[in-house]
Design a binder for these strands. Structure first.
Lengths: 185, 185
DNA sequence: TCACGTAGTGTCAGTGACTGACAATAAGTT
DNA sequence: AACTTATTGTCAGTCACTGACACTACGTGA
């Protein structure tokens, strides 16, 4: 096997985050990012489909983890229970990623184009959950709906958890679920 | 008052939809759109922030309608009831727009960039609903959550309605609501 | 140790989205 | 008819992104 390229990729991600932090998304050119990473602009676009993607690496792995956890949930669990089970199972992963997630969130909060990409990633995640539910035998339309609701809950709970880390994610998830029940009278 | 420009804007929207239908989003240049509309490329970008936006005009008006309907809902309605009330109130508008919505949906279905923009519009709509709920005195975090759930229901019901027009939107909304209750055990 | 294959990278030329600045024009107003 | 103003045209320029081709580092097998 020839050289791996994973190093360059990592440096590109790092450079991207740093420059976006310092100058913002708009004021940063892909040429700049590449230069800081010690590669050519062309190489940037070989590793990432576009300027935004460098900020969202690893989302696919997260999606796979979640989907696997849904599929692996005990057979007798109802759709929503299986989702919650999966959400709780990735808590350690989220906990571990927190140091990287937080600065990234700040960058994203300042730019609509990046926010749009977050929505897109969330949507893909939702599709992943839906597919996983279908593998459990959940009917298609119901699976999509449940995944949608589940993602809303996960997002709600995660943001509450980021704001208030004294409770763990599982507790926030339970709280969100309670709130949902109150809402859907 | 000088010339209005609304005509050019309308022609640009029309040209955009037609060209996207015929050649797809990627294969269509903004210069082409402008030419077909009888204006300059520069004028295109005066009317629309980017190439995608020309497909999504009117979304802001729809958002305002929905938000107003939420605010205007009877005071004694719970958050979710107010949302459903608003959803039902825009059914005529959706019905009227259907001839334009359907071809647009087909175009969007073929392109990830356009799908991303839909998500962004949906998110804005959700924020609009959330703000409207807050005007009714709903607590912030709860309002955001309810809006999210509400949008999931509206999306679910609308897509079911597009697939099966024999039932009206209200009926699909009620059905979706029932399904949600079944899910959130 | 030396060809050899391969994944990764550099180089370069090009397209197309989008912007800023300034001049020109079509209306309506006085 | 002069004047005001929203809209448009013109033009030059930046930057994201791509295709094609050459090159280079690294691991493999002879």
């Amino acid at each position: 096997m020839p050289r791996s390229g994973k190093e360059a990729r990592r440096r590109l991600q790092q450079a991207t985050l740093e420059l976006f932090q310092q100058q913002g998304y708009d004021a940063t050119t892909t040429a700049e990012i590449a230069e800081r990473a010690g590669v050519t602009e062309r190489t940037f676009f070989r590793h990432f489909a576009d300027k935004r993607e460098a900020l969202f690496d690893g989302e696919e792995a997260f999606r796979d983890s979640l989907a696997e956890a849904v599929v692996a949930a005990p057979q007798d669990m109802l759709p929503m229970e299986a989702l919650f089970h999966a959400f709780r199972s990735v808590e350690p992963l989220l906990q571990r990623n927190r140091p990287f997630t937080e600065p990234r969130q700040k960058v994203i909060a300042k730019n609509p184009a990046l926010q749009e990409r977050v929505l897109s990633k969330t949507a893909k995640l939702t599709v992943g959950l839906s597919d996983a539910l279908r593998q459990r035998g959940v009917e298609e339309s119901m699976a999509g709906f449940a995944a949608q609701i589940g993602m809303a809950i996960l997002a709600h709970a995660t943001s509450a958890w980021l704001a208030d880390p004294t409770m763990d994610l599982s507790a926030h998830l339970a709280k969100s679920h309670t709130e949902l029940r109150q809402l859907s009278i």
